[in-house]
Design a protein around this nucleic acid. Structure first.
Length: 585
RNA sequence: GCAUCGAUAGUGUAGUGGUCAUCACUAGGCGUUGCCAACGCCUAAACCCGGGUUCGAGUCCCGGUCGAUGCACCA
């Protein structure tokens, strides 16, 4: 989504969108889905290199969240039964009430039309009421009076039916989060009944967008990577905060936005202390997100964090930030949302399902509490009230008795129970803990948008000896092909040695691509264009001394290394444990 | 969805209603080639879809799809 502040941005001169998309299509990163039947807006295919790139980015995400944070991943169905999305509010709230102007055929948001004419509470009206309210109002598009119009709900969820006879409604999930929320009870037990804990999910989500545009930016089927971190509502200091306390980057706070200011650089420590960010948890994941995004190749100067304005923030959210990535074509694009969602989701599912969705938290010290216990004399109550006796006794426990007795209401009838039929005692009990409904910190990543950003930010052109060299400067750990193996000649056994090296690298889980077609320079250029960080070239010296040249994509420099050192050397370079410049020594 | 513009090999393109459509790059094959898009020969490859007008449509008209832009939409 393009942020409000940049809505009117014009297409700038250094817009490389067309070139990036052209390269992505040509070289097998991304293309429109089902082109042979005419593609459908909002659906894309990841080609061979795009899929590799995507997996590598997802795996780096896992390295941050699953391996380092210890938030294990789960996988839930993409189709969910109706009850889930009724409780989550998506069935009711994820729909827009729309109508179509009979005169100009424009689709309109019915509540917006009503609000524009100061109809009170338009946003909470049902379809019938809205229909009444806007009949006779002028169409905002053509000015004709709206007559005989029908207000209908356009739900952004794809609907389907489960089983034969379409008895059960199902929805394609509009976000992965709900799968984690509804599993809360199981997850809590998995994490042995203690807060905080987190769970993540990477997978497809679906939204039937009215009019998707902007290539891979707004899709009808997209990949999300979401983390749901369950924390004690009063303990929002992150246990590991020191890791990012001094980490700094630009924050565009809601105050700054409203004052017409710019994003300002803060350390996380200061941002929390000055209450720019609500708490350490949110700050920690802002920083982690900055760390993660720059690791996959988002340029730091094209990354900022924008706080939601009070009116765009969901009513339940305590704080909400978007990581926005600068695209020359689209402006600042929302790519990651990080929110403190409080207990909204768990409460909704507790109400919807009847389960508690709480954690029993023990106090450090048991608290002594004075408790009033009312015990009824069932020997008398039983014969007197028969079937109602139990209900009356239970009801007694909840009322404040008068001096003569207590009046209770059971099944709509009042009963007076005289005081000699029950006994009130006061007891001191040890209360060892309490049921707590956790708050949820949710970092939610749009993987497809991250991939687009990486493509755009990695794309580079430079002039080399009068020719334009196109090069994707992917960080080596996310590059689809990790190393190219190129025999200088296809004869005298050079190709055989090259194939052996390729196989050895494969055995070390390195994705090496063998290529012997065409001149060596052409092969380097081909690999540059798909961002392969390293190339090994086998020449006649190889046969003499078992060495090859290793070429660096970015500097085009070469260094001679022993064949036997290749697997370790290359894995080290790919993981960033050492860099190419050091080899040149 | 509305409006404007566009759509020809993988890419970029040429193409007065009149021969199974131009050129370049790319790709594949063979040869040559001692490290940054070398060269020679050969090969493959396209008029977005559906109607209409016409003897004849890549070309004109209508509708659709997709894309770009503006508006609207974007829990």
């Amino acid at each position: 989504m393009v942020s409000k502040s940049d809505k009117k941005s014009q297409v700038p001169e250094n817009d490389i969108y067309d070139q990036v998309i052209d390269l992505a299509r040509r070289r097998g990163f991304v293309w429109p889905s089902s082109e042979c039947y005419g593609s459908v807006a909002g659906f894309i295919d990841y080609g061979p290199l795009g899929t590799l790139l995507k997996r590598r980015i997802e795996n780096l995400w896992r390295q941050f969240y699953v391996v380092s944070e210890g938030y294990y991943e789960i996988e839930c169905p993409t189709i969910g039964q109706e009850a889930i999305y009724v409780a989550s509010g998506h069935v009711g709230g994820f729909a827009d009430k729309m109508c179509q102007c009979p005169a100009c055929e424009e689709y309109l948001r019915a509540d917006h039309v009503a609000e524009a004419h100061h109809v009170p509470d338009a946003s909470v009206m049902n379809a019938a009421a809205l229909q009444k309210a806007i009949t006779g109002l002028p169409c905002p598009a053509c000015g004709e009076k709206l007559e005989n119009i029908e207000v209908f709900a356009f739900n952004l969820m794809f609907q389907t039916s489960i089983g034969p006879g379409s008895q059960r409604k199902g929805y394609l999930r509009p976000e992965t989060a709900q799968g984690i929320f509804v599993d809360f009870g199981r997850l809590l037990r998995f994490y042995r009944d203690r807060l905080p804990f987190g769970t993540v999910q990477i997978g497809k989500s679906y939204r039937n967008e009215i009019s998707p545009r902007q290539g891979m930016i707004r899709l009808r089927e997209f990949t999300q990577a979401e983390a749901e971190i369950f924390v004690h509502p009063e303990e929002k200091n992150h246990p590991n905060f020191s890791r990012y306390a001094d980490y700094s980057f630009p924050l565009f706070s809601s105050d700054q936005q409203q004052a017409g200011g710019e994003a300002k650089v803060y350390t996380m420590k200061d941002a929390v202390a000055q209450k720019v960010i609500a708490n350490e948890y949110v700050a920690y994941y802002l920083a982690l997100t900055h760390d993660l995004l720059t690791s996959i190749g988002v340029k730091p100067e094209k990354l900022r964090f924008r706080q939601h304005l009070p009116d765009e923030r969901a009513h339940y959210a305590e704080d909400c930030w978007d990581a926005e990535i600068r695209s020359e074509r689209f402006g600042w694009v929302e790519t990651v949302g990080i929110a403190d969602r409080t207990d909204y989701d768990l409460k909704a599912h507790a109400e919807g399902s009847g389960d508690s969705f709480t954690v029993y938290v023990q106090f450090a010290e048991p608290k002594r509490e004075r408790r009033r216990v009312i015990s009824a004399n069932m020997g008398v109550l039983g014969p007197q009230y028969r079937g109602k006796a139990k209900a009356i006794a239970d009801a007694l426990a909840t009322v404040a008795p008068g001096p003569d007795g207590a009046t209770v209401t059971v099944d709509g009838e009042e009963y007076f129970v005289p005081s000699h039929l029950f006994e009130i005692t006061e007891q001191d009990v040890d209360v060892r803990g309490t049921d707590v409904r956790p708050h949820v910190i949710e970092p939610s990543y749009g993987i497809d948008r991250m991939i687009y950003a990486v493509l755009e930010h990695s794309f580079d052109e430079e002039e080399v000896e009068g020719e334009i060299r196109k090069v994707m400067r992917f960080p080596s750990r996310i590059a689809p092909v990790q190393v190219a193996v190129l025999p200088l000649m296809t004869r005298d056994g050079l190709d055989t040695i090259a194939r052996e090296i390729t196989h050895t690298l494969h055995a070390h889980e390195i994705l090496a691509e063998y290529d012997d077609s065409g001149a060596i320079g052409r092969r380097y250029r081909r690999q540059d264009e798909v961002g392969t960080p390293l190339a090994i070239t086998i020449d006649y010296d190889t046969k003499e001394d078992q060495t090859v040249t290793l070429r660096d994509r970015d500097s085009m420099k070469q260094v001679r290394v022993k064949i036997g050192d290749l697997p370790l050397l290359i894995s080290g370079l790919i993981k960033g444990q050492h860099n190419f410049a050091d080899l040149c020594g």
